[in-house]
């Protein structure tokens, strides 16, 4: 009888504890902020880097910096931005670092004064195209929109124009710029390119082009044969090829859409020391070697060997992209896209 009573008391105590814990204020971030000494504590990264790669970066970084706990929120660029905006409404952005696909989002952030200005130790090792001239963001990886195809596809596409080949009718995928920042950059780049313009997308639609939620999904759909060709990020294909996935890609004759994918520190970070350590690490030589190894990315600096089968930075033929214009015309691009492809 006594046992049962004490068990009941225990349950009651647990309940009370839960209620108290739910109401208790968080312990204030401890430690003197003044001492710039060793990077430690917790940081949170909001990113659109695909989950498996983000997981690897997380464990690799934590192994190298045992004092730092790195939390990662991963989602599409638009979700990451929406989450930050919701948190801003609530009064506190949780993210210490943000790493989404392309620079135009960071121009938005800069305009809203959300970023912390910082010059990484090895900033000078990065070519100019890999960093913000105002010093707010730095490319942590380079991603390129290229043309991917299933290995069984005949004929194999060589250029952006080839995608309009009737042989692929109804089997063409394009990631939706409504979700993917990289896709938005690609759409704007092609829409502003002479000889292409929105006509290109209308023709694409007429040839049975379909929009797909995100790049990873499209990759699987091409590998599985659901689509014959598609516009996709280069590293995603290099990532699955060694596993035997039936997907290949080509650097388009006209040039690839070249996207430096930036990292920035959020201004309101409570742990700038650790946040800076992360940014420093990613753009360092060992950091970029890790990025090549874990994510099959083309390194953002010239002194790191690119992954097998990928060109180095200077060998990539690229289309001109005006990221400021991407920011400025964001709504127009999305509206126009919706008019052609639907929501």
């Amino acid at each position: 009888m006594n046992k049962i009573k004490s068990a009941r008391l225990l349950v009651l105590a647990v309940l009370v504890l839960f209620v108290l814990a739910a109401c208790a204020p968080t312990p204030a971030p401890s430690g003197p902020a003044a001492a710039p000494a060793e990077a430690k504590g917790k940081i949170t990264l909001y990113t659109s880097v695909p989950q498996p790669i983000a997981d690897k970066i997380q464990s690799d970084f934590q192994a190298k910096f045992p004092g730092i706990t790195l939390d990662i929120f991963r989602s599409g660029t638009s979700e990451v931005v929406a989450k930050m905006m919701t948190e801003k409404t609530g009064g506190e952005i949780i993210a210490d670092l943000v790493w989404v696909a392309e620079p135009s989002t960071y121009e938005d952030f800069k305009a809203q004064d959300l970023l912390l200005k910082y010059t990484p130790t090895e900033a000078s090792a990065l070519p100019d195209e890999m960093k913000d001239k105002d010093g707010y963001y730095y490319a942590g990886r380079l991603i390129n929109m290229v043309i991917a195809y299933n290995t069984a596809t005949e004929p194999q596409p060589k250029s952006w124009k080839d995608v309009l080949n009737p042989a692929y009718k109804g089997k063409i995928g394009f990631p939706s710029p409504l979700n993917s920042g990289a896709a938005e950059g690609a759409v704007k780049t092609l829409a502003d390119l002479s000889g292409f313009g929105w006509k290109y997308f209308e023709d694409l639609k007429a040839n049975g082009g379909k929009q797909v939620q995100n790049n990873s999904t499209l990759r699987d759909q091409i590998a599985s044969g659901e689509f014959k060709v598609g516009v996709l990020l280069d590293y995603m294909i290099r990532e699955v090829k060694p596993k035997g996935a039936k997907i290949e890609y080509v650097w388009p004759e006209e040039g690839a859409v070249f996207i430096p994918s930036p990292i920035a520190i959020v201004k309101t970070t409570k742990n700038p020391v650790a946040a800076k350590a992360f940014l420093d690490f990613i753009i360092s030589k060992p950091g970029q070697e890790t990025m090549v190894k874990l994510g099959y990315f083309i390194p953002v600096r010239a002194d790191v060997t690119p992954p097998e089968g990928a060109p180095s930075l200077d060998k990539i033929k690229r289309l001109p992209t005006d990221w400021k214009a991407v920011t400025r015309d964001r709504q127009a691009t999305k509206d126009k896209w919706t008019a052609v492809f639907g929501q």
Binding site: P50, Q51, P52, S75, G76, N214, S216, D220
Partner: peptide, 11 residues
């Protein structure tokens, strides 16, 4: 759900 949405079908 997130794995499915982000295209990691196998996982």
């Amino acid at each position: 759900f997130n794995l499915q949405q982000s295209g990691n079908t196998s996982a």
